[in-house]
Design a protein around this nucleic acid. Sequence first.
DNA 1: ACAACCTACAACCGATTGGTTGTATATTGG
DNA 2: CCAATATACAACCAATCGGTTGTAGGTTGT
Lengths: 113, 113
Amino acid sequence: MIEEDAAKVDALFHALADRTRRDILRRVLAREHSVSALAAEYDMSFAAVQKHVAVLERAGLLAKRRAGREQLASGDVVAVRSVASMLAELEQVWRGRIARIDALIASDPEQED
Amino acid sequence: MIEEDAAKVDALFHALADRTRRDILRRVLAREHSVSALAAEYDMSFAAVQKHVAVLERAGLLAKRRAGREQLASGDVVAVRSVASMLAELEQVWRGRIARIDALIASDPEQED
DNA sequence: ACAACCTACAACCGATTGGTTGTATATTGG
DNA sequence: CCAATATACAACCAATCGGTTGTAGGTTGT
């Protein structure tokens, strides 16, 4: 997980940086939806929704499976977790800063009351 | 935290969807950096880095304070956590799906061995 | 005072984005 | 077989993005 593969991370955050796509992701995490069922939920063309689904799919946030003439999309929680763990890693960087500040204060009592 | 303010969330994920900005954020979470100190780290113009810093600032991921002629940028861990908590919320949606599937299996023993 | 430095911002450019319409291809039900 | 349905994809468009160069203003040290 330390090897980041920046392009993949770019794609993940980019996919999440659109409210329609976040809403689609929320729906397909809750249950499978066909592309047209998703399209029916939004005030835009079928093609626009289909492109949003494709962006989420390329980022690995959802997967599709064929069921007759329908394509059923399902959210991938592992990808969601991988994004969360990157943020956790960022928070750890910040914790290191705080630890360094605390150490400095402890070693130099003049600094604080 | 339930009120999402989609535009703010868009800005947060968009700001994170660029590897240079993620790297800048990492640095300013670890410690304060002047804009020019940051610019010196990348193979692009000062103005380009300054714009990346501005994007992070508008998203609320970093704040600047004046120190003489320098502008010192510092990462905001609260904003990072707010993104993480949105992802946690998405994961909860997924857990609901799993719970529903489990309940279905429990109520209909024919479905599983 | 003034040269050097730090920052901000405008103007511009090619690439990408998020939307549209239109067309093509599979699959289904009667 | 045929009409309806579901999906995919190309072409196009305005807006935004990530980069550039240039200009201007504030701060510092000598």
